[in-house]
Nucleic acid binder design. Sequence first.
DNA 1: TGTTAGCACTCAGGAAGGTAGAGTGCTAAC
DNA 2: GTTAGCACTCTACCTTCCTGAGTGCTAACA
Lengths: 342, 342
Amino acid sequence: MSVNERKKQILQALIKDYVATAEPVGSRTLVKKYHLGVSPATIRNEMSDLEDLGYIRQPHASAGRVPSDKGYRFYVDNLMDKEQPLPKEIGYIRENLKNKIQEMDALFQQSCQLLSQLSHYTAVMVKPRIKKGSLERISLIPVGENQVLLILVNDSGMLFHRILEMVVPVDEPRLKQFEVLLQQKLGGLDMEQLTRNLLEEISLSMSWHQSLVKQAVDLMDYALSQCSHEQMLVNGTTNMFAQPEFKDVERVKNIMDALEGEGPLRKVFINKTTEGTQVIIGDEIPDATVSCCSMVKTSYKVKGEAAGTIGIVGPTRMDYSKAVALVELISEQLSEMLSQKK
Amino acid sequence: MSVNERKKQILQALIKDYVATAEPVGSRTLVKKYHLGVSPATIRNEMSDLEDLGYIRQPHASAGRVPSDKGYRFYVDNLMDKEQPLPKEIGYIRENLKNKIQEMDALFQQSCQLLSQLSHYTAVMVKPRIKKGSLERISLIPVGENQVLLILVNDSGMLFHRILEMVVPVDEPRLKQFEVLLQQKLGGLDMEQLTRNLLEEISLSMSWHQSLVKQAVDLMDYALSQCSHEQMLVNGTTNMFAQPEFKDVERVKNIMDALEGEGPLRKVFINKTTEGTQVIIGDEIPDATVSCCSMVKTSYKVKGEAAGTIGIVGPTRMDYSKAVALVELISEQLSEMLSQKK
DNA sequence: TGTTAGCACTCAGGAAGGTAGAGTGCTAAC
DNA sequence: GTTAGCACTCTACCTTCCTGAGTGCTAACA
């Protein structure tokens, strides 16, 4: 049984209707709304075939049909009209990102917020990893009595900082001396190469008290391990509640939990994105606790190179066409702004 | 009609039962479970009085009684046994905060997380405002080509930082010069006094190109306005879903919205806390969209002075005794750690 | 061979009615 | 002031019935 043109047309119409109404779609409805030029009976025959093929299913015997995950997949891969101009959105996005260009972090936050606002789904953003690229600058700044602010900057201008607590006060000249030493030895190195061994080697040449050196190395090591963690922003979680499939509190809870901490949804976003935009539908998400849930993600770039990920989480009954268009649009705009800066 | 000892006993028992079961409590249940020494009929008479007084109410004619907001208020003010030792929790908290003492920000995050974990409600934490106290140190660090990292530290070691974007590159010596100048002129001043006027005055003595000076002042001004915004952490929102009164999605949405952005719940936390722990019950929260919702908050201290707020949001049917004990416990532990540091 | 009208069948969801159980308020007796 | 007893009320739950939507099948048609 082949998926002929009419079957495609029917599947497309069915998905369009179901996305809009969230109600199972019957043969009569399809004929009436979408001018298919044949009778409901014919549609029924075709729908029966589509069901055998696994693209749609019946919630119960006397109901209409709803798309299956496989149906959405077919739609996204073969039927979806990719292009959508979104001219109003472009202006709005540019306007709202331009405000924030003074401030890197606000730019990420704003991108994420815009995406959730415009899509009415939940937006997720993985910030660029500092560990990529080489160490351009390392600074140690005394703060208060026992605290030192450590700042690492890589060659794309990404920045990592931590306030570290020293067991005993360290005077400023010494700190400066340490900073210069670190800058000399570490500057220009690939961030991934900054290991404990290297730090210990350097610390040997220090004139400080031994215990202090040891702590400094410990702290640096700790800071370096910290900066390899991805930071993630999530925005618009309450948008979930507007979706009828998430009237069930348990389901929302599962998704929200999966977005927190070490949750599985988080992992999907953090995993290296393959080139281009990815759509992950329903059970394609490798986690049993989240259901009825799809994701659209893409990577944004700094100077042409993938820096981080941005995307949305919504119900499988998602307007994929619009979702993809929006995610790509915001990713492009963000990439442009980020690349302008340098 | 006075609230005699027996009425108090009954109200206390009723609240205890309702908090545990979330079901309206009848007279027979009270007698059976709480050994009140009188018959259900007597309890009924007393309950009728309590209802007239507004402390309890009936959801419908043939149901038991539930506490009203006024009832909870009376309970919190007069009946609640304040003391709870929580020895297990103390150890757990200390252990988990100690890990994070190296890192200010992690300490706040961890406090908030511990509070939501242990209370099973939603925890909220307002970070200390840097604007309190005087400016101890100001640093300008070049980052990438056109970016400058601005760091302000106040005399309690609180830190504020922003990456600022310059329209044209600024060379390091100039930046250093500007930094020294700012440190000289501004160091030791009360943070609240740092106004645009002051900045402009200082900038007059700068040897830079005029437009660059103007931008520097703009950026500083912007940064200063930013650092007067309170930062707030929210943790454990999904704990809401476990409460039967929040089976209604709409209600959870309202609360979560009220905790975001400029939401009214946020405002309650940010408002200056009066001395000690505050319990805000149901309609005492000045916002109509959140219902069935109470808050417990207190301030934590740095060197004896109130620095920020920490607390929880939960249903009015909250275990107030435990909530207050936990909030105070964590606030104390956090205060201790923060004060140790300096 | 593909399409269609007609028809019997199925099932969810809502309305109506009936029952059990929990809990009250009232009254009269202690 | 306290209590037992009783009539009353109301919700929650179950059952039954009905309607409407939608299907699958069959036979006729082009």
